[in-house]
C-alpha cells in the first residue's frame, strides 16, 4: 500500500480520480456506518423524548398546517386526498431535503478536531449524515402507514413501488448539495444560517403543504426543480400514478449531475479544508 503526497495531486489526477473516489467510499463503508451510529446515539442521548422527536416534528407541523387551513388563515384549494395525508407525505419527503441538507452542511464543522487531526476520507461524514436522513425517512414512513390506516386510505402495491423509486433523486440531490455546502460551511460558518432561511423559503416555494393545482402556471413553481421531486413520489403513493414523468426525469438528471460535480469538488478541496477548519 503505497501513498504518494504531492502538491495538487487530486487536481492533477483528472479523470483517473473517479475509481479512487468510489473505492474510498466502498473501503470505508464500515466507517460510514460507525459515524452514522455515533451521530444517532449522541444526538438523542441528552434529549427527554429521544428518537420520538423524529416522528413528533412532522406530526406537529401537519397539525399546525391543518389548523391554519381549517381556520382559514392559509387558503388553498381542496386536495384530492385527505389534507393531513397530503401534507404529511409532502412534509416527509421535504424533510429529507431540509434536515438532510442542514445536518449534512454542518457535518464537517461539527467534526472539528477530527478533520484537522486525523486522516480519513472526510466525505464519510457527509455520507453518514445522509444515512441519518434515510433512517429518519424510514421511521417517518411508519408514521405515514399509521395515518393511512387511520384514514382508511387504500394504496396500491404499484403506488408504493413507484413511490420508493421516485423518491430516490431527492436523496441524491441532498447528498450532492450537502457535499458542496459542507465545504462552504467549513470556510464560512454562517452558511448554515443562510441555508436554513433559504430552506424555509424553499418549503413555501415548493408544493409541500399545498397542492400544485392552484398555482399551476406560477413561474417560480415551474422553475423549482424540487417541485417534481416532491410531487412525483407523493402522487405515486397516494394516487398510484405519476402525472409528470418528464419533469421528474429532468429534475433527476439534474440531481445526479449536482451530486457528481459536488463529490468531485469535495475530493479536490478536502485537504485544503483541513488546513482551514
Amino acid at each position: 500500500m503505497q501513498k504518494i503526497y504531492e502538491p495538487f495531486q487530486y487536481l492533477k489526477a483528472g479523470i483517473r480520480i473517479w475509481p479512487l473516489m468510489v473505492r474510498d467510499i466502498i473501503d470505508h463503508r464500515e466507517l460510514i456506518s460507525r459515524l452514522f451510529w455515533r451521530n444517532l446515539i449522541s444526538r438523542y442521548k441528552q434529549s427527554l423524548f429521544g428518537q420520538v422527536w423524529i416522528v413528533l416534528m412532522p406530526l406537529l407541523m401537519v397539525g399546525t398546517f391543518a389548523f391554519l387551513k381549517k381556520t382559514g388563515v392559509f387558503q388553498f384549494g381542496a386536495t384530492s386526498v385527505p389534507y393531513p395525508l397530503f401534507a404529511l407525505t409532502g412534509l416527509i419527503i421535504w424533510q429529507v431535503f431540509s434536515t438532510g441538507l442542514i445536518t449534512g452542511c454542518s457535518s464537517l464543522v461539527s467534526a472539528g478536531d477530527m478533520i484537522s487531526k486525523i486522516n480519513f476520507p472526510r466525505e464519510s461524514l457527509v455520507f453518514a449524515s445522509l444515512a441519518q436522513a434515510v433512517l429518519e425517512f424510514i421511521i417517518k414512513l411508519v408514521l405515514l402507514a399509521i395515518f393511512l390506516v387511520i384514514f382508511n386510505y387504500p394504496v396500491t402495491l404499484l403506488g408504493i413501488i413507484l413511490f420508493l423509486i421516485t423518491v430516490i433523486p431527492i436523496f441524491i440531490l441532498t447528498l450532492g448539495l450537502s457535499l458542496f455546502f459542507s465545504l462552504v460551511t467549513g470556510i464560512f460558518r454562517d452558511t448554515v444560517n443562510i441555508l436554513s432561511v433559504l430552506v424555509t423559503l424553499g418549503m413555501f416555494l415548493s408544493p409541500v403543504v399545498y397542492p400544485l393545482k392552484i398555482s399551476n402556471n406560477n413561474f417560480w413553481l415551474q422553475l423549482n426543480l424540487l417541485t417534481p421531486l416532491i410531487d412525483a413520489p407523493r402522487d405515486a403513493l397516494l394516487l398510484g400514478k405519476v402525472t409528470n414523468w418528464s419533469m421528474w426525469g429532468v429534475a433527476s438528471i439534474f440531481s445526479i449531475l449536482v451530486f457528481l460535480v459536488a463529490w468531485r469538488v469535495f475530493y479536490i478541496a478536502e485537504t485544503k479544508i483541513a488546513e482551514r477548519i
Binding site: Q2, K3, I4, Y5, E6, P7, F8, Q9, Y10, S116, K117, I118, N119, T271, A274, E275
Partner: peptide
C-alpha cells in the same frame, strides 16, 4: 496526508 505538501513529494 492530512495536508498535501505545497512543494516536494512524500512517499
Amino acid at each position: 496526508g492530512i495536508f498535501l505538501p505545497d512543494r516536494g513529494r512524500i512517499t
